Amino acid sequence: MKNNKLLSRALLALVLGAAALGAQAQDKPGFYAGVGVGQSFVDENAYDDEDTAFSAFGGYQFNRYFGLEAGYSDFGKLEPKGAGRALEADSVSLTAVGTVPFTDKFSGYAKAGFQRWNLDRAIPGLTGTHDDSGSDPTYGLGLQYRFTDKVALRGEYSRFEVEDLDLDLAQVQVRFDF
């Protein structure tokens, strides 16, 4: 609960700070969308595995410093260390994205928000699955290189809190601006 309060305050500070910056610079507003591929990682409790992960995202860039982004991430199938249930997880998220331009083409960004996750756990000995879902915080850092005004390459590392597990996601993404 303490982490949720801290994350909520950080997100509020990010939104208010970006809104103040936005009053000064309204130079690149517009919608964007993209896709990503990478690795999901978990190393907690009985799980220590990685798998190929995919994502799709879209958002609105209010100015060069602030945007809101919605995304979908599929973490793949994560196996336990020993005998146990494999996890298949995915998430839908909404995050605030604060961007710091280093040059005209190269920038860094941080994102924080909330996600709705879904777990499909394979239960040994049964043919069905046990579904579980919930809402938790998500946050991440990334770098972006803009090839043109419409296409950018991003490298991102994100953490998704899922029940008592922290799922990490490292990926390369392509962003298309409209």
Rank of each mutant, 00 (worst) to 15 (best):
A19F: 04
F176Y: 13
E44T: 14
K105L: 08
G22R: 06
E50M: 07
S40G: 09
S158H: 01
Q39M: 04
T103S: 12
G71V: 09
T138H: 10
N63F: 07
L143E: 01
A20N: 06
L21W: 09
G98S: 06
F102V: 13
G134M: 11
I123V: 15
A170P: 02
Q61V: 06
Q61T: 13
G113T: 12
E69G: 14
F178P: 05
Y65H: 11
P137K: 09
K77L: 03
R146C: 01
L68G: 12
D104P: 02
Y109C: 09
A152W: 09
S55A: 08
V42W: 01
G155L: 02
W117K: 01
V97N: 11
F114K: 06
P124S: 08
G36P: 09
Y109L: 04
A110H: 00
E69S: 14
S133Y: 07
M1P: 15
S107I: 00
Q144H: 07
G155T: 14
N118L: 12
T129V: 15
Q24C: 11
K111S: 14
Y139P: 03
F147N: 05
T129E: 13
L94K: 02
A86E: 08
D131H: 15
S158Y: 01
R154L: 06
K105D: 10
L126C: 07
K105A: 05
A19T: 11
E156M: 03
L21A: 04
L68C: 05
R154A: 05
V37I: 15
A83Q: 09
V37C: 02
E44N: 15
N4G: 10
Q173C: 06
S73N: 12
G67F: 07
V172E: 01
V42L: 03
A83V: 07
T127F: 07
H130E: 11
